[in-house]
Design a protein around this nucleic acid. Structure first.
Length: 212
DNA sequence: AAGTATCT
DNA sequence: GTTG
């Protein structure tokens, strides 16, 4: 429960292989948001169900050569959007360039994301503690970009019962995790409603992954 | 009690 | 093995 203050957030190592880059994407934020809109026009936000059949609180869409979905076959990556029947929108260059830069700064050179998953959290929405393990490729890191409303990121360990650290994520923050922390548990506490940030009344989280 | 699937 |  150690909250971190802005002045300590420049570059914070969360675990071996995991780092928070405070404000890393702030300059590109307006362009990233325009790209989010463009993706959403081609592949609308929708809510999937959890393994237990409950509606997930966050609305999602994807871009790139793979998109993440949840359906009767489980959580998986597919090449076409089940909602439109078309390929996922091309990943905007501003996404892939930022993701590559962030990964490189975090120690993962040569990161070429195959999936850009966009999660939209309205006030009250969160995501329970989980591992990212639907990717066949576990060598590449996960790159996560926060935009809009702030949220508390729960950063855990390799086991569900491991201690968690509450890390506030703000507009423009980037978290990269890979190596021995690639499968660490993590989640997002319900987003608290707050005044819009740079005109945004919700939180977007962009996560970039190599799938295979 | 609940819509998964699965890995070295 | 997990979630509410």
């Amino acid at each position: 429960m150690d909250d971190l203050f802005p002045e300590t957030r420049e570059r914070l190592v969360l675990a071996p292989g995991a780092v928070l880059l405070g404000g890393f994407a702030k300059a590109e934020a307006p362009a990233l948001l325009r790209a989010v809109e463009s993706v959403a026009e081609q592949a609308p936000f929708r809510q999937y169900r959890t393994g237990g059949g409950r509606l997930m609180a966050a609305a999602m869409t994807s871009c790139g050569s793979y998109g993440w979905i949840s359906d009767g076959h489980g959580y998986r990556y597919v090449r076409t959007d089940p909602l439109t029947g078309r390929l996922w929108p091309v990943m905007p260059a501003v996404f892939s360039i930022l993701a590559e830069r962030a990964a490189r700064v975090a120690g993962y050179a040569g990161f070429v994301p195959q999936c850009g998953l966009i999660n939209r959290y309205e006030a009250g929405a969160g995501m329970g503690l989980h591992q990212d393990r639907d990717e066949r490729n576990m060598k590449a890191p996960v790159v996560s970009v926060s935009l809009g409303l702030s949220a508390i990121f729960q950063w855990g360990g390799a086991r569900r019962q491991d201690a968690r650290r509450n890390v506030p994520l703000h507009h423009g923050d980037v978290v990269v995790w890979g190596g021995s922390s690639r499968r660490n548990f993590h989640g997002i506490l319900p987003v608290r409603s707050a005044p819009a940030v740079e005109g945004l009344g919700c939180r977007y989280n962009l996560t970039f992954r190599v799938v295979d």
